[in-house]
Design a protein around this nucleic acid. Structure first.
Lengths: 214, 214
DNA sequence: GGCCTGTCGGGAAATTTTCCCAATCTTTCG
DNA sequence: CGAAAGATTGGGAAAATTTCCCGACAGGCC
């Protein structure tokens, strides 16, 4: 696995997409895709079997989460290089990925060259971020507080969670023994603090943050 | 455009993915990718400029929907061959695509060879479906009780999709060239027809139906 | 022709959202 | 300890949205 070039394990549940990356990556000098996997479980198995230099992994796969795969791989080898390659680059998702042990995060809307550059970076032990992800995180860290969700209090989080899971204002008020007015105020506060405009955006935030699932 | 081989327009808002398809397709004898586009608007422009034999298009793109692109292209040339290549293959999405004028529908979880085969089929004027999509539609047509989404018209589906992806009423109105009032009416109608009460529930419906992803 | 369905928007009452505010109650910290 | 900070709970009132009804217009179908 060492010596000649960089060996890569590709994880994505879409064969055509995988096929595409393989060709893109192998056109790079010194890159070798030595294995592919289409699920979190297969990714772990392939990692054990092939010991690749770097794992390029789509975080949103059907079934078990990509985060799970990252955790499993890191549990086995905490020096593993795992580069997340994802459709979405929301701050909570990115943070969750790094918390799970990722070495880099590149969105699929990035140029192919960004992916290649990121692979070289994580191999060198550096942390890699695509530009759009960096901007999202930067904008967030410029705020006096840190993550969007960290600026929310316990109650606000709970109201967000219940809203996102589809409950009405009345149901939430009843659940928490609050007045409708208070729930409305929290609802508004959460939007104000997160800077989000629509309830749909709140749902997406809650889901991508792992607050609730679909 | 005619004569030697099949000319292809590639539409997808993820550059790396696009790069991948291009290589996959061009490895096929007689296939030539003559243009790429990363949005519905760009797709229409490219179609006008390059008159490709077939358009391979990802239906879930940021901004204006892929359905919009299909309609625009078909409005200009109703013999255009448009092959939808999508992450999800749920029945409502597939139906919407064909209603808009698609010639074929292949999911990204299909083998690359399925995409190639589908392109050859639509070129011959046949309708192409990947196996998984065919199974979904078959299962559904055998099921006496239809999906909730089947009660929704095309416009309603589109408004639901954009709502669920986090756009505001104003943005949707602008995207579709409708008045805010009309979008509000559709929003209400969708809730009434589905029997759902909150926007969060709509988002969950849209996501679990494959209308949009997170 | 008549009928039905999908698309598009106006109107008006009902409701919600938006922000402002104040009263508690903790927690923190000098 | 006492002051400051912040979380929690809700009122108030104007602004905005939702809700439901309506009519108009375009197609398709019998």
């Amino acid at each position: 696995m060492a010596g000649l070039g960089i060996s890569i394990l590709l994880v994505d549940d879409h064969p055509v997409v995988r096929q595409g990356y393989r060709r893109v990556l192998e056109s790079q000098d010194g890159f070798r895709v030595i294995a592919e996997a289409d699920s979190a479980a297969a990714a772990y198995a392939a990692f054990k079997a092939d010991a690749p230099d770097v794992v390029v992994l789509d975080i949103s796969m059907k079934g078990a989460s990509g985060l799970e795969a990252i955790r499993n791989i890191r549990a086995r080898d905490n020096r593993a290089c795992i580069l997340v390659f994802s459709m979405h680059g929301e701050a909570p998702l990115v943070k969750a990925a790094f918390a799970a042990g990722a070495s880099g995060f590149v969105t699929k809307s990035s140029e192919p060259s960004a992916l290649v550059r990121a692979i070289r970076m994580v191999i060198r032990g550096e942390r890699a971020l695509s530009d759009d992800v960096a901007h999202v995180l930067a904008a967030e860290s410029l705020d006096p507080q840190r993550t969007v969700l960290d600026r929310l209090g316990e109650r606000e989080i709970e109201i967000l969670r219940q809203l996102a899971s589809g409950l009405t204002t009345e149901q939430i008020a009843a659940n928490l023994h609050l007045s409708i007015k208070t729930v409305q105020n929290y609802h508004y506060l959460v939007k104000a603090k997160t800077g989000l405009q629509t309830d749909a955006q709140l749902v997406r935030l809650a889901v991508t943050s792992g607050l609730t699932d679909l």
